[in-house]
Design a protein around this nucleic acid. Structure first.
Lengths: 223, 223, 223, 223
DNA sequence: TATGAATGAGCTTTCATTCAT
DNA sequence: AATGAATGAAAGCTCATTCAT
């Protein structure tokens, strides 16, 4: 009678679904690390936020660092999966790039914690990521897609010839990441909330324009 | 016999110039905070790195947080001073904007520690900065300058009408900051060192092109 | 279908011979305890060193302490068995004692782990041994033999009258045990490796001389 | 008014005599390590036994290992000091050696904790001692003295020629150390308390006889 | 007979900070 | 203006052991 068992576990607090426990720890740890940084995160707090003990965290992940690496792996796996689902077939090259940029914008908008984790990892010079073979193997669907669109645009003669997919991805990411990652200091210094919902469409369009203006073949502008 | 004392202090390494001691602590603290983040920085290490004791740090700054705030103040004061020295008189509007963008690029290139401090402060939601009246009073010379150039460009009919100085500053900053701040994760994931000296001119030009393409009045491009 | 099961176990490395598993655990535990002491030994490490899980150790022995007791029992059983095999028939009393001392010397020389276990058990005031009826029942063949030789020597008038077998055994053991057990501190302090193979014969002879000189009837030495 | 200060310290529990605090910690730590071994000793317990916190122990000694090293240093310093005070002038060579052996016997008798520390350090292969330059520099007065006596005895023709001071020191130490260090297992196995006060003189004499018999020139014993 | 999952208690150590002068 | 000594609180981590089947 499995249902009974489940109830018993709930009663005793014993967890018998390792995969679920692992995921719950990762979920909670993601919030904690994103909220306070790597050094500022407390293993104690992660445990306190769920019905597990600190001991369990070490049982599953071995150390604070390995836990953080697992958090990064989970976050990157999720974003890469999202990237793989992007579909821009049927759009002309310029529209396709704009759409890809907008989807990137939206993804950053809706995953501020991921961006915080990335900032944190950069503070630590990507040393944790370097220890994860899993992340290295994820590849970069966004770049592959971008490369294909750029190729098409060049073939059609509407894009400049010399644009590299990785560079363009950087340009898009820079805008999207900065808006979210640096909004606090930017907001304080220039009194502008970059993530104000009322401004979202404004910045979304700005990004699209910026990218499209940059890649488009300059039509006799000096004529 | 005061001279004697001075000699003794020199001999024992005692510091008798409060302002200088304060600056040395700030200098050392800047490196420590930039290197390890706010939580990761160790007051002990800061003391160990110089010829002062940990006790002195508390004597001068009161707490780790106030020390960090002072570090931020010093860093922002320096960058604002640099911005005030920018001179783009004599350039046509487009060239002026390009030049301003390039100077921003160069400044970020040569002050990676400052960028790290900004990232760190964003991790902490700019809460330390908020406690510093000094930073709020610094103003933003770069934005003022940008506003003036944009005004000129619009008057001459070469710039689009709807561009806001703060937005444009954001666009420039995003590119410059991302390239330095996120170079570690970006490099690991896409195998490209964004700060490779051999690529510096490439990215510098890319930034200028991106900004100028964006602000320029679109000359009958669909004609 | 039992045959199938057996094959599966063989394939998966599962152990189906309890006695053998028990012995393997004891063997491994002996090394671990001898290497790190009682408190320093790790049940985890013992499990890791062999193809069993930590859980099995508890299944077979119940606790770390009971495991240590079992290790002691095995070690003492082995040495008592060796003692029972000593044969000095056909030697004159003095030669018999010398030979017994030399065999003890050799046994200690070749069983340094046993000596470490004894030292460890003494650190713990023999409290584990006290809980083992098995060890108490082992008796002491060496002492019995020594008593017989002493009796013979006294009867022949070549040994002093007042020597007790247990005392003599202590004298022999002290020399043999110290040489092995305290060689590390002694070597460090006096720069002499007591267990240097080149010195083995030297110390073996020294022991024999010391014992024989002590028990021999002092023949008119003041005459 | 220093007395007042002292009272205040007593009242607040603040200790203002670092050297005294350090010594108290060492004293307490000596008992703890001797009682439970290195791994078995608890820093918590050491703190609990005195009016200090665990934190103070780390403040003064840095780590459990460095504390243990300091304990060893103190113990060896004390025994070396005692050795330097031994005076056997005026005794004939044989009596001098006997006296030196007896003093060693008495010292071990009255310092069982020291012997436990030595056993413990041997379990750890003297690795802690090796990290202490202080111990290495202590020298060995007992050996120097022994060497001088042996030289005299040889000159007077009453000692065997081939006896080395370090070897003789080992012989003496083996007896004295074993009696104390191994008394627990020995007592359990052979039902004899080697440290029974009633037997002290017996073993003291036994040691003296053993040593003197061994070093004395064998006077026509086969005649 | 055998075992993977889980754990309470406690470990050594570190941290920013304050005391007392 | 300056400082050596001291510290409460909590951090990350480890241990022998038990649960539930």
């Amino acid at each position: 009678m499995p249902p009974r068992q489940v109830e018993e576990h709930a009663a005793t607090g014993r967890e018998r679904d390792p995969e679920r426990t692992r995921n719950e720890i990762l979920e909670t740890a993601t919030h904690e690390f994103a909220a306070h940084g790597y050094a500022g995160a407390r293993v104690d707090d992660i445990a306190a936020r769920m019905r597990t003990t600190k001991r369990m965290i070490y049982y599953y992940f071995g150390s604070k660092e390995q836990l953080f690496i697992a958090v990064l792996e989970r976050a990157y796996t999720a974003i890469r999966r999202a990237e793989r689902e992007v579909d821009v077939d049927g759009f002309d090259p310029a529209s396709a790039v704009r759409r890809l940029a907008e989807l990137t914008f939206d993804h950053h908008e809706s995953h501020p914690e991921f961006i915080r984790l990335v900032s944190i990892e950069n503070i630590h010079r990507a040393e944790h990521m370097a220890k994860s073979p899993a992340i290295a193997e994820l590849g970069s669907p966004a770049i592959d897609l971008l490369a294909r669109i750029l190729e098409r645009g060049r073939a059609e003669g509407v894009f400049r010839r010399d644009i590299d997919a990785v560079d363009l991805h950087m340009m898009i990411s820079a805008f999207c990441v900065f808006r979210v990652a640096n909004r606090h200091t930017f907001g304080t210094l220039f009194d502008r909330d970059l993530t104000d919902p009322a401004l979202r469409e404004h910045y979304r369009t700005m990004l699209g324009d910026m990218i499209v203006d940059y890649i488009r073949m300059p039509a006799e502008q000096d004529a």
